[in-house]
Structures are given as structure tokens and as C-alpha cells.
Design a protein around this nucleic acid. Structure first.
Lengths: 152, 152
DNA sequence: CATCAATACTTGCACACGCAATTAGCTGGC
DNA sequence: GCCAGCTAATTGCGTGTGCAAGTATTGATG
């Protein structure tokens, strides 16, 4: 097996490791959030993204990008959250095709309740994963990701 | 914002980055494999896992673990691949609850055709991701994952 | 040897997703 | 000012998934 073949194997193994870690974290978050606040991970991601905008609107498309979802899935996700009165649709005046979404008070409240659970679960899972030799290097690398804005 | 809060933010940001990279890679692999060999990423994962066993059987449960899938999803996934004659179910004699799966010649052939496409796509996407400052640290870490067996 | 718990897989069901087609609204050429 | 082409969001439809219940088989206990 030559050097080139080794590189291919390393990449494949790296991808499997990444997928395994991702699946592990997502499954744990899913379980924790569903049990405590009846939210899925994508739903939490949307609430988190909206909250990070701190009172400002977000287009459906931005939401879709933040949640890595298709437009249609985004529509239905927003529907679900709107039905639960966690956010509201706002037709913006300057471009009447675009639809902005905003957290309601209830949405913000639920997010505040969900966040500590989310963060604690993440901390626990990352700690556990860090002890597995295969996953550890990737877990370590997560500490090194660039922080946006506030850290600059 | 204190040190503890920073750590929480770093973890959250790390998780978002991991999810973004994972989604990116998976989407590209999905597209490439679907277009060329009509396989989804999970289907390829199963073929890959079976091929790595090199002629030996795998239980449904091992398959489920390798593909990060529930038992029910594994059953249906194996059904799909069996319908396409890419693998066969083998009822093993020593434990008649367990069901082993094995690649057929057609399955092995399709895998051999899919692998270069998979590997090339992975190389390309990782190279592209490595140029994005936010994703780069995680991409780098993938090179450092431990190789099983053959590298020992 | 009969029985009860545990394990391995399968099936019923509801749900979230992506793709393609659709509707509504903006924008540029003439 | 109007039609063609583009973008934003939604809806119809088929498919893959997880959970919970069901079936078959094994192993332990009395």
C-alpha cells in the first residue's frame, strides 16, 4: 500500500470518526432536549440562531442555512414553532416576498430554559468522547475553532 | 463574561462547526454517490463496512452500529440492498435469531465502482473545507485520527 | 422439563425531510 | 408601462427514519 493509498484511508477513517462523533452528540442532545423541553435539535438550533440575533429578524433563507435545511423543511419547521407560539412570522415591507421570523416572549423563555440543558449535555458528551482515543483528536480540535465577533 | 461562560460558548461554537462540516461533507457525498451509482451515504457505508470484513459476515446489529441507525431502519436498508441483489441474508445456524449479511458479487462490483468516487469527493470537499478558516482546525484534526488494525 | 426474562430482528405507524412544481413579488430591457 | 426572467416562500408527493409493539429464539431458574 503506497503513500497515496494511505492518504485515502486516513481521510476515509477521519470521515467515519467525524460522522461517529456527530451522531453521538446529536443523539444525546436530541434525547435531552426532547425529554426536558420537547424540542428537537434543529428546533433548538433555530431558536438559538434567532436568539443570537438578539431581537432582530431573520429571513427564512438565513434560518435554512443556519439549520442546514431545505427551504421546504424550513417552512414546516417554522410552522411547527409558530403553532406553539414560540416565534412569529413578519411580512417585511421593503420586500414582500421575504418573510422574517422573530422569537416571541414564550420562545425566548423556552430557549432560556433549554440552553443550560443543551450546554450541560454538550459538555458531558464532549468529555465522554474525549476519553475515547479515536474521537479525542477531533474533540480537541473543537476547542480551537474561531469565535465570531465577541472574541475578536 | 467569565471564563466558565467562555468555555460554554467555545463548546457551542465547536459543535456548530462540527455540524456544519458534517453536513457539508454528507451533502456532497450524497449528491456524488446518487448521481453515479444510485447509492445513499448510509447505503455506501453499509457496503463499505461489509467489504472491510472481506468476505465475512456481519450481524444486523453490527451493521446498525456501523451506520448509526436504529434496528428498524437497518432492516429496511438491508431490504433495499437485498432487493437490488447487492447483498444476501444468511440465517446462521448457531443462533437462529441472528441474521448475517454478506455482499454478493454484484454488491462487491458496485462498491468497487463507488469507492473511487467516494474517495475523490471526500478529498475535494476536505480540501475546500480546509480553506475556510472556521472549518480548517477540525479538518486538520481528521488527519490525526488513529488508524485501526493495519496501522498498528 | 416447564417457564420466564432477555435478545435479535421485523412490522405498524406517525413524522420530518428533499425534490419538483407552484404562487407571489421584484427587476431589467425595450 | 409592460413582459420576461429571477428570487422567496409554500405545497404535493414519495421516501427514510425512530419508537413502540410483535414474533422468534436463546438462556437461566425452579
Amino acid at each position: 500500500m503506497g503513500i497515496a493509498d494511505d492518504a485515502v484511508e486516513v481521510r476515509a477513517q477521519g470521515w467515519r470518526t467525524l460522522a461517529a462523533l456527530h451522531g453521538l452528540i446529536e443523539a444525546e442532545l436530541e434525547r435531552a432536549l426532547a425529554a426536558s423541553v420537547d424540542l428537537s435539535v434543529v428546533e433548538y438550533t433555530v431558536l438559538d440562531a434567532l436568539n443570537r440575533q438578539d431581537g432582530w429578524h431573520m429571513r427564512m433563507q438565513q434560518l435554512a442555512r443556519a439549520a442546514a435545511l431545505s427551504p421546504s423543511a424550513t417552512t414546516r419547521l417554522v410552522n411547527r414553532l409558530e403553532d406553539r407560539a414560540l416565534l412569529t412570522r413578519i411580512l417585511c415591507a421593503d420586500d414582500r416576498r421575504g418573510i422574517y421570523t422573530e422569537l416571541t416572549a414564550a420562545g425566548r423563555a423556552l430557549y432560556e430554559r433549554a440552553r443550560p440543558i443543551h450546554d450541560a449535555t454538550l459538555e458531558r458528551v464532549l468529555a465522554e468522547a474525549g476519553e475515547q482515543p479515536e474521537l479525542a483528536p477531533v474533540v480537541e480540535a473543537l476547542h480551537g475553532v474561531a469565535l465570531p465577533a465577541t472574541a475578536a
